[in-house]
């Protein structure tokens, strides 16, 4: 972080794209919480996540970007949609999506955002890291995971195994007695 940071003006191409993607992400996020249709909310979430993935791409973190698309857009949102369908939520506009607490919630969200922005700005105001294409590709990441981070990686797999066993313990009903 000792490199001299170039000025903000004139903005470079990637910077403009990044800003636009940010606007898309923010706008779609707002729509997620304001739309009156539950299914639309889930779909706007796809847009929001997609914009984030685009942001990662611009920052040369391509692997993370694809993970974002695969897991969040592909899996999480689909899970949400399934959830909506399985719980037989109404398709179409529903009047009772709003809560009386929305102003309080908005306030908390704003405050949280303010804290985050303050911390990030005060922490990284002077920091500068040049973008280096290829740094975020699958290969360097993989090599780092299986070299430096191999132990936590394996421990994570153990964690998932434990979670699976736990889920089975809590849910299986076909337990028979020893007798």
């Amino acid at each position: 972080m000792t490199l001299q940071a170039p000025g903000f003006w004139p903005p470079t191409g990637p910077e403009i794209v990044f800003l636009l993607l940010g606007v898309v992400a923010l706008g779609s996020a707002l729509l997620v919480v304001t739309t009156r249709q539950l299914v639309h909310a889930a779909l706007w979430l796809v847009v929001c996540f997609g914009a984030l993935a685009g942001g990662y791409l611009v920052l040369t973190a391509e692997f993370v970007a694809w993970v974002q698309v695969l897991i969040y857009v592909g899996a999480v949102v689909v899970l949400l949609l399934f959830g909506i369908m399985l719980t037989r939520a109404p398709i179409g506009r529903s009047a009772d999506l709003d809560s009386g607490n929305r102003w309080a919630a908005a306030l908390v969200a704003l405050a949280t955002a303010a804290v985050l922005v303050t911390v990030v700005v005060s922490g990284f105001r002077t920091a500068y890291a040049p973008l280096d294409p290829g740094q975020g590709a699958a290969k360097p990441l993989g090599s780092s995971i299986f070299r430096t981070w191999v132990l936590p990686f394996e421990a994570l797999s153990v964690l998932l195994l434990a979670a699976l066993v736990g889920a089975i313990v809590l849910s299986r009903t076909d337990i028979q007695g020893r007798k």
């Binding site: 153990v158 195994l161 434990a162 066993v165 313990v169 337990i175 028979q176 007695g177 020893r178 007798k179």
Partner: peptide
Amino acid sequence: ALHEGAAHSEIYPLVLF
């Protein structure tokens, strides 16, 4: 389940985890 004397033997691996 109580009557049949069922039991969760998964407890041991969980403790080891």
